[in-house]
Design a protein around this nucleic acid. Structure first.
Lengths: 238, 238
DNA sequence: GCAAAAGTGTTCACATTACACCCATGG
DNA sequence: CCATGGGTGTAATGTGAACACTTTTGC
């Protein structure tokens, strides 16, 4: 959409002084080595030289906002069809040194061991979320907001399986919950609760190469979850 | 920030083709006449003539995003210091007929009987949320998203008191919960639960001019809520 | 045989639900 | 005196938390 020359006939939406850069920033969470991690890139702006930054990009003229976040994820990690959720939009005047940029934050949950991630750009690094204490821009605030949002979400919906491999033991699953929520959970109660959801398929297989008694392997029962959601939404409210 | 003439030296953030209009839209909820209502304005765009629209405005060059939503609220309703929460950002390419506009939706909870609201602009009207079936732009989707967000929120935090007058009876409070959640609640259990929160101050007064036995009046115990939050946040997690 | 984690039930406290009668007021 | 909602308690059920011992495997 071209900007018309005569400002008096230009809709206010299109006047240059009411135009802003819009970006998306992706907080890509993964779980590895007993910790919740986030995928970061070294910032190339002089103002933040040497600091870490979230993966983001400017919204393009003919691109839906959600599409931009999927694009960032695809371009930077090679992943498609990953869990991605919009969290919050940050629009403080001074948040970007190069000018006014309004950014919408998304978080994504990926399996760190995924094939495509392993061959990724080596400017990217996984950082333990707990140890990130400084970032470029307002990205530390964005990371904090997304981490809080994730903590709430995992207690409401089974999004955690997006962080797991296809087959996992209950110990691994519990460890991921514990890393995200930063709490210790009771093993027996955890097992009881997870089984009671009906969302675990017992694969009848055992862990391999563990230095202790191997646990059973499970997978996430997606079809059952789809049925549950359908039933819940078919009710009177919600 | 001026746009530099030479496009090759202009940071990509500042190039015109990467600039968008950004707006805020406020879903202003109120409770009146046994229904949850939303404050709407008649749309003045030809494309949506006669349809209703949320209260919104374009973000200004030197204005924080949150400040823009407070400004819309102040300018349109005269209210200050109201409850306002960001919910979601909508950025589909074709969502605005005049051009590309990315909008961030907020919802607000106000007391419909507030003095300043009564003398407001008569282009504004309160509509029962349940009866709104068509709106300009994608505002019906935005309203739906905010309504869902409110339903969730009232079950987690005592934001509902923003919709009430300073003094209210338990019947009134229950009716507001029922209107928002679209459920019937048991009166005895409701009373028990609300009292157990410790957030109600018994004013020792009775309702006036009700055609039945008057109920006691209560107010929201803000200080106690502040203490509760402080205590909860001082713990190990959150 | 030792270390490490798997697997398994019961008890208790607490929260949620369901449910019915008499009372105070206005009309 | 009638209609309307105010005010009250208890029993049943469900949910979450605490807690210990035996088993299986790798080393």
């Amino acid at each position: 959409m071209a900007i018309k020359p005569n400002i008096n006939t230009t809709p206010v939406e299109l006047r240059p002084e009411f135009q802003f850069a819009v970006s998306v920033d992706c907080v890509i969470f993964g779980y590895d080595e007993d910790a919740l991690k986030v995928l970061l890139i070294e910032c190339d702006l002089p103002a933040f030289r040497g600091q870490w930054s979230l993966l983001g990009d400017l919204l393009r003229p003919d691109e839906d906002l959600d599409a931009a976040s999927y694009r960032v994820l695809r371009e930077r990690t090679g992943l498609e069809n990953v869990f991605l959720e919009q969290v919050h939009t940050f629009g403080r005047v001074g948040r970007h040194p190069a000018g006014r940029v309004v950014t919408t934050a998304y978080y994504s949950l990926v399996n760190v061991r995924d094939h495509q991630l392993r061959q990724m750009d080596n400017e990217l690094h996984w950082h333990p979320v707990q140890e990130v204490s400084q970032m470029a821009f307002d990205h530390l605030e964005i990371l904090g907001t997304c981490h809080q949002s994730l903590r709430k979400k995992v207690q409401e919906e089974p999004v955690i399986f997006n962080l797991m491999e296809d087959k996992f033991s209950l110990r691994e699953l519990q460890a991921v919950y514990e890393a995200i929520l930063d709490v210790k959970l009771d093993r027996r109660n955890f097992r009881k609760k997870l089984f009671s959801t009906g969302l675990l398929t017992d694969l009848g297989e055992l862990e391999q190469n563990v230095p202790h008694r191997p646990g059973r392997l499970y997978s996430f029962h997606r079809e059952e979850y789809a049925r549950m959601r359908k039933k819940a939404f078919g009710g009177i409210d919600f």
